[in-house]
């Protein structure tokens, strides 16, 4: 569990809470145009999701917290740079909010969105 010892007891942070923080950070990260359902069988209707528990997976392994992001990236951007950037943004915001270190942030690019500027 994401548990922190404090003088009066302990604090437990649910995965969903962490997912919400990660979601907010991800959608403000440049080049990420949406979170995608991690399961392809969920179908195309909910390919881009607005629910922070879809598209973001938070796992606790003992003390360690891992976050998996399933993202849709704007076509025409440098995907690696966007992925690096969203991973570090999410890590920074989550660590800042919960005060515990994140073991890893994995970015899965589930698709690209083509938007015409013309």
């Amino acid at each position: 569990m994401a548990t922190d010892q404090v003088p009066h007891g302990s604090i437990h942070i649910a995965p969903r809470a962490i997912a919400t923080i990660a979601y907010q950070a991800a959608v403000e990260s440049y080049g990420v145009v949406g979170l995608a359902s991690k399961n392809v069988f969920d179908g195309l209707t909910n390919f881009i999701v607005k629910d922070p528990t879809h598209g973001i997976e938070v796992r606790y392994e003992g003390e360690a917290i891992s976050i998996d992001l399933y993202v849709v990236v704007e076509y025409g951007t440098n995907i690696k740079a966007v992925a690096d950037s969203v991973a570090s943004t999410v890590r920074f915001h989550v660590e800042k909010a919960i005060g515990l270190p994140i073991l890893e942030v994995n970015v899965h690019v589930q698709g690209l969105r083509m938007s015409n500027a013309e």
């Binding site: 440049y30 704007e74 025409g76 951007t77 440098n78 740079a81 690096d84 943004t89 500027a117």
Partner: peptide, 23 residues
Amino acid sequence: ALMGARGNSGVILSQLWRGFARS
């Protein structure tokens, strides 16, 4: 710019150039 984009600001810069060039 697209190929060499580094960091958030680099990605945005490459998008600016991309739009500029397309126009």
